[in-house]
Design a protein around this nucleic acid. Sequence first.
DNA 1: TTGAAAGCGCTACCAG
DNA 2: CTGGTAGCGCTTTCAA
Lengths: 333, 333
Amino acid sequence: MVTIREVAKAAGVSVATASRALNGLSIVTAETRAKIEAAAAELNYVPHSGARSLTRRKTDAIGVILPDLFGEFFSEMIRGIDMAVHGAGKHLLLGNMHGSTEETVLAIKSMRGRVDGLLVMPPNSRAESLGDAATWQIPTVLLNAQPQNGDIPFVSVDNYSGARMVTEHLIDRGARKIVHISGPASNRDASERMQGYRDVLRERLSDTHPIILPGNFREDAGRNAAQLLLNRDFEFDAVFAANDMMAVDLMAELTRAGVRVGHDVLVAGFDDIPLARYISPQLTTVHSDITRLGSSAAMMLLRLLNGEALGADAGITISPTLAVRASTTGASA
Amino acid sequence: MVTIREVAKAAGVSVATASRALNGLSIVTAETRAKIEAAAAELNYVPHSGARSLTRRKTDAIGVILPDLFGEFFSEMIRGIDMAVHGAGKHLLLGNMHGSTEETVLAIKSMRGRVDGLLVMPPNSRAESLGDAATWQIPTVLLNAQPQNGDIPFVSVDNYSGARMVTEHLIDRGARKIVHISGPASNRDASERMQGYRDVLRERLSDTHPIILPGNFREDAGRNAAQLLLNRDFEFDAVFAANDMMAVDLMAELTRAGVRVGHDVLVAGFDDIPLARYISPQLTTVHSDITRLGSSAAMMLLRLLNGEALGADAGITISPTLAVRASTTGASA
DNA sequence: TTGAAAGCGCTACCAG
DNA sequence: CTGGTAGCGCTTTCAA
C-alpha cells in the first residue's frame, strides 16, 4: 500500500506539498505538480479515503438503514436514493438491518465515523424508540416515518388519504363487501392505511362491518388471505391489500381458483411497484413514486449536510395518486 | 461528538484502559470496566468507526460496484450479497457506478481505505480494462465476469450453455424461425448468450439464418423489438431475448397486438427474475439464481479476507437450469 | 492490570 | 510557493 509519504519522497517534496498537488490546490508550481503527479502515477498511488475522512471530518458517504431488502419497494427506494446521491459524488453505505429495533440502533451506531448523514427507515411505527436525533448526533432524515417529537426531518407518503382513495374507488365501482388485508400490526404505514379504509367504510357503507385479514406485507400473506377467502366462503366482492406485494399474490391465487379478478372480485393494492403493471389484469393501486420518495429524502439530507437549515419543509408528505387499472375495472388486458 | 478520551477522563482512567474495556479485552478489572462503561453510557459515547479502522487497518465493510441499479437483477444480487455479508457483521458500500469503465475505475479507487474487499461487476466484457487486481491492491471477487489473466477469483453464470438450453427447447417445441434479441454489444454475458443461440441454430437448423435484433437489457429494447417484428412482418415463430427484462416487455407488446404468446409465438428469456412468474403467460427462462450468485461471491470474498487461499475454487461457474413455463408451452395460466 | 506514547494516512495550519 | 508539524479518534506495543 503506497502512501502519500512515499509519493512525496519519490518526487522530492514534502508530504504537505504532495497533498496539495494531488488535491488540485492551485498553490503549487506547475513543475512541482508534474513531478508529484508523475511519481504518484509511477507508484500507482491511490489515496486512502479512510484517513482522509478522519482529518477532514467528512466521509463523503451517506448511510442508509432499511428494515429489509426484499421486494421492489426497497430496490426502487435505493435506486432513488442513489440517483440523488450519485449526483453529489457521495457513496452509499447500506447498514445491516434485518428487522429489530435493537439491531437498527446498532446499525445506526456503527455508522458513526463512516458517514456524514443518515437515511433511516424505522422498522416500526415508533421512530423515537430508536433514540432521538440528539442521541445519534448525526444529520438524519427519516424515510417513510414521522418522528413523534417533530425535530427530525422526514419524507413520507400520505398513507391515510391514499387508502381512502382506493376504498372510495372500490365503492364507486360497486363494491359493497370490501375486505382489507392489513400490514404488520406494529407498522405505521399499515395502520394508517387501515384507518383510511375503516373511515371510508364507516362514512359510506355504514351498514357493513369492516373485514380485516392480518398480513405482513409479504407475498405469502397474499396467498394465505386468498386461501382464507376461498375456503371460508366469505361474502366479499373486493379486496384492498395494504401493499402491492400481497395484492399480486392474492390475485394470482384467486385467478388460479377460477375467480375473475376485475369482474367477480375487484382487487387493489398500495405502492405501485413496477410489477403492478405487468401482471394481468393490471393492478389498481396507489401510486406513491417510491423512487422519488428515496431521492427526495436523499436530497433533503444533502441540503442538511450543506448547512442549509430546512425550516418549513423539514417534513415532506407526498400525496399519492390513484392508478386505476383493470383489476378494478374489468377492462380487457 | 464525544471521544474515547472524554470517556477515559470521566472514568478516571487512561484512554488505553478505556479502549480495552470498551472492546471487551478481558485484561481489565471488573470494577474499572464498570466505571468505564458507566461513563460511556452517561456520555452517550459511540465509537468512531472511521478512526478505528485506520488503526486496525480493517474497515469491516465490503464494497460493491455494479454497473447499474435498474431492475430486479441487481436488487436480487444485492440481496444475495447482503445475506452473506450480514452474517459476517460487515457493511455494504455501494459504489457509484452508472456505466462507463472510467467511472468504474474511479469508483474502485475511491473505495480504498473504506472497505476490506471488493465485489465488482464490470460494465463490459473486458474485466482487465479495469486495471488488474495487482493495481487495485485489494481483495476482489468479480461478479458475473471472468478475468482474462485468471488471477482474480470470480463467480459467473454459464451463459453459453444456458442460451443453448433455451434455443434447443424452442426448437424442440417446434420453432423454426427463432429471433434473438441481444444485449449490449460490449457485454460479455450478452455475447456468450448470443453465441449459444448461434451455435445451436447452426447445429440443428442449418438451413436457416440467425436473426438478431440489437438490444440493451432494458425494457425499452423489448418494446422496440416487438414493434420491429410486428411492423416488418417478419417471419418468426419464436423469440429468445437475452434477458427477462426485454422478454417481458416484448411479450406485453406482442400480446397487446393480439399475438398469442405461447401459441402463435414462443418467447423465452434469461435470468429468471421474480417477475417472470407473475406475468401471464409465465415466462420460460434460464434460471440463474441471481441471489445465490451474489451470496456465493460474497462468501468467497469473505473467505479471501479470512486469509484462506481459495485454490481450485477461485472461480465458480454456476450452471443455470431451464425453467419451462407457459410462454413456450401454451399451457393455460 | 494499567498508563504513556507511537502511530494508522492524511490534511491543514503556521512559518519560512 | 513550500516544508514542518500537529492532530483526526482510536488501537496497541512497551514499560511500569
